[in-house]
Nucleic acid binder design. Structure first.
Lengths: 137, 137
DNA sequence: GATCTCGTACGATGGTCATCGAAGAAGTCC
DNA sequence: GGACTTCTTCGATGACCATCGTACGAGATC
């Protein structure tokens, strides 16, 4: 289980209080498996997360996503995304920032992420579904 | 469940004895879901099938694939691929021909299949793995 | 330090899935 | 018709997975 500590760049606007102790295990770029990525993206909830992440083009906290599931389930989905190599998670104080691993994915599987995102957009448009689940009531 | 009978072209070298009674349910193009396609492709066995199918650029019978699983399991995987809309299956006598639904997928999700196939090739090359599972013994 | 927010960990649950083996159905060939 | 090939169907099984609720941990704020 050779997993890096994820130092690598991305240490520019990060405050000192961030990433103090809690380190999150990420797969190294070379350990990202296509099957795992596809599996991660094949869940509607996770695909939705990735779409929002790509649309915002910024790091978002877990709680900024308006998912129709509990916090536990949200944690689960983010972990699947992280462990498959799709997102990078970094603690910033009590919040956990989530960022798409565009560079790594692009390097490993050129065009794949964009194809999937475009496909998701097309399908959402086609089905008149933005991916958002309507509130009950 | 509006599912076509799959007549559509591809009726050129087909003998009359083929496709007599047994019809296989395929999702109509508009019913193909991205999540299902990604899920179908996220299984190593099925990804391997799709890769071979794409490489050969021809319709292949189920038994032409050298998969390290039993026939039952093979049937299962081909059904998942068919029901997700990735492959088209047609009976030809006792054999069942499998063809990639390139046109449908390309129309729905442009570039997606090629991205996945390219990604699979890259990964196979990178891991020194052709996707083929070594025979035990 | 008390409290609040944000996320984690654990156990449980119901569902899906990949796999197998055995028995059967459909077509072809002698 | 009988044997052979090809794929299916069924039941079983063990694994994984999405989901929840509750309890907890780590920072931030007052």
């Amino acid at each position: 289980m050779v997993i890096e500590e994820v130092p690598r760049r991305r240490a520019d606007a990060v405050t000192e209080t961030a990433a103090t102790g809690r380190a999150l295990p990420h797969p190294d770029r070379e350990h990202i498996r296509l099957e795992s990525v596809l599996h991660a993206l094949s869940d509607p909830m996770r695909l939705q997360i990735v779409r929002e992440l790509a649309a915002k083009e910024a790091e978002l906290t877990c709680s900024q996503f308006d998912l129709p599931v509990t916090k536990s389930t949200t944690t689960h989905h983010f972990r699947v995304l992280r462990e498959s190599g799709v997102v990078r998670q970094v603690y910033r104080g009590t919040a956990k920032m989530n960022g798409l691993r565009r560079d790594d994915l692009e390097s490993l599987f050129p065009g794949l992420l964009d194809s999937v995102l475009a496909a998701a957009d097309r399908q959402a448009a086609r089905l008149g579904d933005t991916g958002r689940v309507p509130a009950d009531g």
